[in-house]
Amino acid sequence: MSLTGPLPDRDIGISVLIQRAVSSLWGVARRRYLGVSDEVFLISTAAVDDAAFGAVVAAGQQVRTYTLELPKKDSNGEFLETAQVIHKQQIPGEGAWKPGASANGPTWRRVALNRHGLGAASS
């Protein structure tokens, strides 16, 4: 049995980043295979880190999932030992991630893809 604490801010933030990444892949594919202009999202590393770790730190919920084994009996009717596993959220150490860093600059930007490449026609 597994119990996972909800963190909707984190889940929504990561879902938005995934949507933008997939949209960018489709934009590149449309330009490449259909020859139409489209766009890609360039997402900053700070935005990804804040989406992945910011809500965890703000909630003080370092333990995300707790898995436990339900008790079982052996053939003699004795209860067997059970196991419990705590899945801790790995937060980057000091210097690897600066909380709120994405607030200091743009978290993403759109880059237009024309039929010939990024931004301007290439020869």
Rank of each mutant, 00 (worst) to 15 (best):
T4N: 00
T82K: 13
E78Q: 14
M1E: 13
S75N: 07
P106S: 14
A103F: 12
S2F: 06
L80K: 15
S37V: 00
M1F: 12
R32Q: 15
A58G: 04
Q90P: 00
G93P: 00
L118P: 02
F41H: 09
M1V: 14
D74T: 00
F79M: 09
D49V: 00
Q84H: 12
F79W: 14
I12W: 03
V57K: 10
Y66T: 10
R20F: 09
S24C: 06
L80R: 13
G54N: 05
G117R: 04
R30W: 09
P8F: 06
V111Y: 09
V63T: 14
W108M: 07
S23W: 06
V40E: 01
T45G: 05
F79N: 02
P6S: 13
E94K: 04
F79Q: 08
Y33W: 13
I14H: 01
V16E: 02
P106A: 15
W108S: 15
I91P: 10
N104Q: 14
G95F: 07
L70Q: 12
A96R: 09
P6N: 03
L7N: 15
Q62V: 12
L70H: 11
A46P: 02
V40A: 07
T45D: 10
R30A: 13
G117S: 08
S2C: 06
Y66H: 07
V57G: 07
I86C: 11
E69S: 10
T67A: 14
R64W: 03
Q84Y: 06
A58R: 11
E81R: 09
I14A: 00
I91Y: 10
A29W: 05
V22H: 04
D11I: 09
P99S: 03
D50E: 05
V40K: 01
Q62E: 12
I43G: 04
G105C: 06
S44Y: 04
F53Y: 15
R31F: 07
N114T: 08
I86M: 15
N76C: 08
W97L: 04
R109C: 02
G93D: 14
P8M: 03
S123H: 12
A47D: 05
D9E: 14
L70Y: 12
P6I: 03
